[in-house]
């Protein structure tokens, strides 16, 4: 093991990371992370408005990761691309939820387009877009339907920050950062 734990500790401390995880995402993991963050926010006596927003965004981002792997057979089972990473942090001004996962290069443009579209909408336009997709969108087998990202943007109130990095001919690494503040 080459990792320097003290360095890692200081890195997490410096960036106000409450929780970090790398690995597979199961339904049980989602439940546990929600529980940990909920009790952390309880301890910090966060106002219920913030608590609810963080909880909601966390549910959507973690379940996006959960479904993403299940719905992409080319990723599942291959450990080098099926693992995800996420960090949950709290700075003075905002809660930060960051997720990262591998995806197929072929799907990058569509996702980039979707996030850009959401980022270009104002709050009331986002509300209309949400209703439109809710009412007309096609549901996937698991019940998703493109609503997740819109909901994340609505609850966050900030623009979504993202990055795609092509790692080889087939895969890119996708990172998403969501900020939640008063």
């Amino acid at each position: 093991m080459k990792i320097n734990l003290l360095e890692f500790y200081n890195l997490m401390d410096q960036d106000d990371i409450i929780l970090s995880y790398k690995g597979d995402v199961s339904s049980e993991l989602v439940s546990s992370v929600l529980q940990i963050i909920e009790s952390k926010m309880d301890k910090l006596e966060e106002p219920s408005r913030i608590r609810k927003k963080v909880y909601n965004v966390l549910v959507e981002t973690l379940q996006n990761l959960y479904h993403h792997i299940a719905e992409n057979p080319s990723l599942s089972g291959k450990e080098e691309v099926s693992s995800v990473i996420f960090l949950i942090g709290k700075s003075d001004e905002a809660y930060l939820i960051c997720t990262g996962n591998y995806m197929e290069n072929d799907n990058v443009e569509e996702l980039r387009h979707r996030i850009d579209k959401i980022n270009n909408l104002e709050a009331d336009e986002l509300k209309d877009f949400y209703k439109e997709v809710l009412n007309n969108g096609i549901m996937s087998d698991k019940g998703g339907g493109g609503l997740g990202m819109i909901d994340i943007a609505r609850k966050s109130g900030h623009k979504l920050e993202y990055n795609f990095k092509e790692v080889d001919q087939q895969h890119s690494f996708y990172s998403l950062l969501v900020k939640i503040s008063e």
């Binding site: 609810k52 909880y55 909601n56 549910v59 959507e60 379940q63 809710l134 009412n135 969108g137 549901m139 698991k142 019940g143 998703g144 339907g145 609503l147 997740g148 819109i150 909901d151």
Partner: peptide, 12 residues
């Protein structure tokens, strides 16, 4: 208290 977007379709 909370619902996810996957539930929102079912509630509809």
């Amino acid at each position: 208290e909370y619902f996810n977007t996957s539930s929102s379709k079912c509630i509809l």
